[in-house]
Each structure stands twice: as structure tokens, then as C-alpha cells.
């Protein structure tokens, strides 16, 4: 027993002796690190941000922007190690893409006062922390109008992940949007209890459809399973969230609320260049173009012109502040 323990200690000592030294290269580049809860190819939250950062890199030039990505760091413990390592490696802007990273940034940001950190959905911006906050209820409201107008069965299904954070904002906005044009419609909210179980989301979508829903929507990376389930039934439409998901079901995905992460990242880069390394609460809204409703062009004719006009008008009202969407208090 002792020997095993000793052997383990010995290996550790050996490892320490052979330790390598890190290399630090100073450059004019801006180095952006991205910490993701899911994967770069989840076709939702994480992929959206990844594409946003890549777009910034493309626009400013590969030689000006360096990007590093760590995925699958859903639990904050592992994410903290990643954030700290990026900070100590001299990354300028570290984006921890999830609400769960608030606590760890609070702590680490104090130790790296020159580094910019960012997280969201969140509101706690500090000296060198940006917080970004997509107003997902706004786009959801517009999608709710489309759903309320288009439903034939007057039943609309929501395939939710966990009742928290963005899912609440989205669902609340969506329900209000539906009610505003179709008070008789029944919006049925159900949750799978998981962010990533696509098979469960698929079954939930099937149950919604079998129970009469003809328009469905939902949030989180699990929804790809629900979209596919909808695609198997003709006449069922899906309203997406996070990013344009029409690639997996071009005849089913009508519209999507897409977050314009590129602008957010670009804004943070600009702030940094101007010497402002944090403290901003960056809102993504219809007003600033942070949220866009993407219409699947293949199905553009499904949405009648008057509905589209109403959506445009409501969008203007929201932007003008004439219409606010109440979130639960």
C-alpha cells in the first residue's frame, strides 16, 4: 500500500522536475479565448457564439485576431481552470459563454486587472467584466405573433429544456406574442429537464404534435431533435432560437431568432481598443440589431404579407419603446 502511494508521489515529483516552461510572445494581435458549455457544432447557443467570434476574426484579419476555443465546459469548476489559464497566457478578451460563469469571472477578473472578461446571459458588469444580455423575449414576442397567426389548430407547443434563464425569457415573450394576436390560442409549455437530450426533445415534440400542436418552438441545443421530429410530420412548423437552424429541416423551420454575436464581440473589441476593458452591460435587442428574426427564404411564402407587416410594425414599436414585454418578477 505504502509503496503504491510512494510510487504515485514519485511520478509526480518526476513530472515536476521535467516541467516545461511556458512561452509568452508579445504581439499586436488581440487574443480572444472562448469557453463554451456545449460544442462548437451544437447548432445553437455555442455554435452561434463561435461563428460570431470567427466572423470578427475574418473581418479584422487573421493576423489581427487570434482565437482559442475550449468546449464542453458546462460545469463551472472546469471552466474556471480554463478561464484562469487563458488569462495567465495573456489572452486579452476571455468570453465565458454562459450564465453559470458569473461567479468564477468575479473571482478571476480581480487577479487579472488588465484582461477583459465577458459572460452572458448576465447583468453583473464590473471593472474588467463585460456582461451581455440577449433580450430573447423580444424576438420571441415576434415569433409568437407569427405562431398565433399561423396556427390552424390553435394549439402551439413549446419544447423547453430547464425552466430557467433564457428559456423563461423566451417562453414568456413568446406566450405574450401569441396572446396579442390570438387570445384563444393555447400555448403549451413542457420541459425535458435537460439541455442536451435530443431524443427526449424529439419525443416531447411528437407528444405536442399528437396532442394537436401545429406550430412548435423551443430553446437550447436539444431542440435539433425536436426540429427533426417536426420535419417528419407535414404541415408542422418550427420557430427556432439561437441561430438559423433551417439547414437541418428546410421545409419545417419557418423563422429563427438569431443572436448577432459578431456585433457583441466586435463591440467589446472596440471598447478595448478605446481603453475600456469592461464594466459594460451589453444588451442584445431588436433595437441595436443584436437580435434578428431570420426568415427561411424557402418558406417565405408561408407567412402572409399582412402577418409579416404586423411583425415589422411590432418590431418598430418594441424598438421605439411603445411596447415592453413584461418578465416575471
Amino acid at each position: 500500500m505504502k509503496k503504491v502511494a510512494l510510487s504515485v508521489v514519485l511520478i509526480m515529483v518526476l513530472a515536476m522536475l521535467l516541467s516545461a516552461c511556458g512561452t509568452q510572445t508579445a504581439s499586436q494581435k488581440i487574443k480572444i479565448a472562448l469557453v463554451l458549455p456545449s460544442t462548437v457544432d451544437d447548432l445553437s447557443w455555442s455554435q452561434g457564439m463561435t461563428e460570431g467570434v470567427k466572423a470578427v476574426q475574418k473581418e479584422l484579419g487573421e493576423d489581427k485576431v487570434e482565437v482559442a476555443i475550449s468546449e464542453r465546459l458546462g460545469n463551472p469548476t472546469d471552466a474556471a481552470a480554463a478561464v484562469r489559464q487563458y488569462a495567465s497566457q495573456g489572452y486579452d478578451l476571455i468570453i465565458a459563454h454562459g450564465s453559470q460563469y458569473q461567479s468564477i469571472l468575479d473571482e478571476i477578473a480581480k487577479e487579472f486587472p488588465k484582461t477583459s472578461f465577458a459572460y452572458g446571459t448576465g447583468y453583473q458588469a464590473h471593472d474588467n467584466i463585460f456582461a451581455y444580455d440577449p433580450q430573447s423575449q423580444e424576438g420571441a414576442y415576434l415569433q409568437g405573433i407569427i405562431a398565433g397567426k399561423l396556427t390552424k389548430s390553435n394549439i402551439i407547443g413549446i419544447v423547453g429544456p430547464i425552466e430557467a434563464g433564457d428559456a423563461i425569457k423566451y417562453n414568456v415573450g413568446f406566450q405574450q406574442g401569441v396572446k396579442s394576436v390570438n387570445p384563444n390560442a393555447d400555448v403549451r409549455v413542457a420541459y425535458t429537464g435537460s439541455f442536451g437530450d435530443i431524443a427526449k426533445a424529439s419525443e416531447l415534440a411528437k407528444a405536442q404534435i399528437d396532442a394537436g400542436a401545429d406550430i412548435l418552438t423551443g430553446t437550447a441545443q436539444q431542440t435539433v431533435g425536436a426540429i427533426k421530429a417536426c420535419a417528419e410530420k407535414p404541415g408542422i412548423y418550427w420557430l427556432g432560437n439561437d441561430m438559423d437552424q433551417s439547414s437541418i429541416a428546410p421545409d419545417t423551420v419557418l423563422t429563427a431568432q438569431a443572436y448577432n454575436w459578431k456585433d457583441v464581440v466586435m463591440q467589446m473589441v472596440k471598447f478595448r481598443q478605446e481603453g475600456k476593458i469592461g464594466g459594460e452591460h451589453l444588451v442584445l435587442s431588436l433595437g441595436n440589431g443584436g437580435i434578428q428574426i431570420v426568415v427561411n427564404q424557402k418558406l417565405a411564402n408561408v407567412i402572409p404579407a399582412d402577418v409579416m407587416a404586423l411583425v415589422e410594425q411590432t418590431k418598430k414599436d418594441i424598438i421605439a419603446g411603445k411596447l415592453t414585454i413584461e418578465l416575471p418578477k
Binding site: Q100, S103, Y123, D133, G165, D166, I168, K169, K329
Partner: peptide
């Protein structure tokens, strides 16, 4: 504060 800011992330206060 998660409620008042409308972010609703499931965590307790510090």
C-alpha cells in the same frame, strides 16, 4: 437579483 434583472439563472445568492 437574478429575478430582478430578469436573467433568471438558477443559482443562490452568495
Amino acid at each position: 437579483t437574478e429575478i430582478s434583472y430578469g436573467t433568471g439563472f438558477p443559482q443562490t445568492q452568495q
